[in-house]
Design a protein around this nucleic acid. Structure first.
Length: 436
RNA sequence: GUGGCUAUGGUGUAACGGUCAACACUCGGGUUUGUGGAACCCGCGAUGAGAGUUCGAUUCUCUCUAGCCACCCCA
């Protein structure tokens, strides 16, 4: 059989296989996310990855959607897309039940999202994202809680306050500045995009690109006025609602010991649907100062689906960039084997006998595997050891029915005891060095 | 879509244009105490595809393909 006749083992471009060791990472980050988010009172929802394309087209223009999403026509002629983000879906779900839900609503999901783009660092064609949103409620309280929540999530992964920075801004603030500079509303999205990229470009390039859109004097004064938080404050004044909002949020967060949150007037974020607060979490590592994730307030998205306008704020945290961050900062734990006991056989073995022993441990939620490799005892133990299984039980024909021979491969301690005592010993030992 | 870089067993690497493509790990088998991670022995297994230059190509050239990185984009 020639190799060429075989199917390729490659996975589809830009998506991942999750081998057990990869899935352990996923399970770890998801369990942390759930823990924190549920602690804040969020309820989990989910939906199909298939959506009518129009829910994305509505806000971003047909062409972008067709180019950057998986979009196709089904047999009934409906145009369908694989969801590239979760927010339209959740807005749709909320809109459908506005009369039944008790607002404010706090919902979260951990869902896979798809984008049709060429894969590169930190960006694949499928990724998993935690989405947490608040619908309704008092704007300032909801906004503040959102930032507290993302801070708590980062903390739960063991990130120190110095490992990341949270930048916040307000879309209305940018609009006020545009008003002051009398910038046409058609030009605003373009200018916003440029501002968003400001830190990536050198200042000459930036000014040149800017001058192509607006007059040089305007460029200069806009840049001057947006150059620092203090300058913005000076220009807009303390009474500007978005300034007050930002100041209040930062003060309240500081009082709640969230100290790494800062006002950044050039923070924009890509989505057009943001209407107020926007925020973004950055890695402070000087070698890799990139954005990890972010979110913002979108007060008019639900009204695309419903007559009722429901204000909302939320964020999306993707697994790919989060894992990069965690790896860079050595924040991923060492994983123990999920299987705790391997029952090996010396001499002629009886599967029935071994599985009876195994069941005893399983009743106590200790994952136990019975060796069926048919290998020699030496190989059985060797394999268990290689897989990181902490205990082996040696079941042999020379052994009395009451006594269990068990060995802890980590400490090399070996005991021969009654089954109840063995169980207690195993539990004790596992508790001593439990990682997660 | 544009540009740059890369492509050798399952993995990671090696091989001035010149023997049978080397080494380590992994995997399979074996030896020795039938209580492990050791040692030793044996084995499986590769130059992405196609063309060209050459007496001779893993090595040089071209095309294709794939991957990575950056740009674009990130709604």
């Amino acid at each position: 059989m020639s190799k060429k006749t075989k199917l390729s083992t490659d996975n589809y471009k830009g998506v991942r296989d999750f081998y057990p060791e990869d899935l352990r990472e996923q399970k770890y980050i998801r369990s942390k996310m759930r823990e924190v988010v549920e602690g804040f009172g969020y309820e989990e929802y989910n939906a199909s990855p298939l959506e009518y394309t129009e829910i994305y087209a509505a806000k971003s223009g047909e062409e972008i959607v067709k180019e950057q999403t998986y979009t196709f026509e089904d047999k009934g002629g409906r145009t369908v897309s694989l969801r590239p983000e979760m927010t339209p879906t959740v807005a749709r779900m909320i809109a459908k039940k506005t009369r039944e839900l008790t607002f404010p609503v706090r919902w979260y999901s951990i869902a896979n999202l798809f984008r049709y783009e060429s894969p590169q660092k930190g960006r694949l064609r499928e990724h998993y994202q935690l989405n947490a949103d608040i619908f309704g409620g008092v704007t300032e309280d909801a906004d503040m809680e959102m930032i507290s929540l993302i801070h708590a999530i980062m903390k739960s992964f063991g990130a120190k306050t110095t490992d990341f920075t949270i930048y916040i801004n307000d879309r209305r603030l940018l609009n006020s500045l545009y008003d002051i500079h009398e910038i046409d509303s058609d030009l605003r999205p373009e200018i916003s995009k440029l501002l968003d990229k400001k830190d990536k470009m050198n200042s000459k390039e930036f000014i040149r690109a800017m001058s192509e859109l607006i007059e040089k004097e305007k460029t200069e004064s806009l840049l001057e006025n947006i150059s620092s938080p203090n300058k913005v404050l000076e220009v807009l004044g303390q009474e500007d609602p978005s300034i007050t909002h930002i100041i209040n949020i930062i003060e309240r967060l500081n009082r709640n010991s969230v100290t790494n949150v800062f006002f950044n007037p050039t923070l924009v974020r890509g989505f057009d649907y943001y209407t107020g607060l926007v925020f973004e979490v950055f890695d402070t590592d000087s070698k890799n100062p990139r954005s990890i994730f972010g979110g913002g307030r979108y007060d008019s998205l639900v009204s695309l689906f419903s007559d009722r306008d429901i204000p909302a704020v939320g964020f999306g945290l993707g697994d790919v960039r989060l894992l990069e961050f965690l790896k860079n900062h050595s924040l991923l734990p060492d994983y123990d084997s999920e299987i705790k006991i391997m029952i090996c056989h010396a001499g002629s073995h009886s599967y029935a006998k071994s599985s009876a022993i195994a069941n005893f441990f399983r009743e106590d939620k200790i994952p136990t595997e019975v060796d069926i490799s048919g290998k020699k005892l030496k190989d059985q133990i060797s394999r268990a050891s290689k897989r990181g299984i902490p205990f082996v039980i040696i079941s042999g024909d020379d052994q009395t029915s009451e006594q269990i021979k068990i060995k802890h491969l980590v400490s090399k301690k070996e005991l021969e005891l009654g089954i109840e005592e063995v169980r207690n010993w195993v539990k004790e030992t596992l508790n001593k060095n439990d990682s997660w």
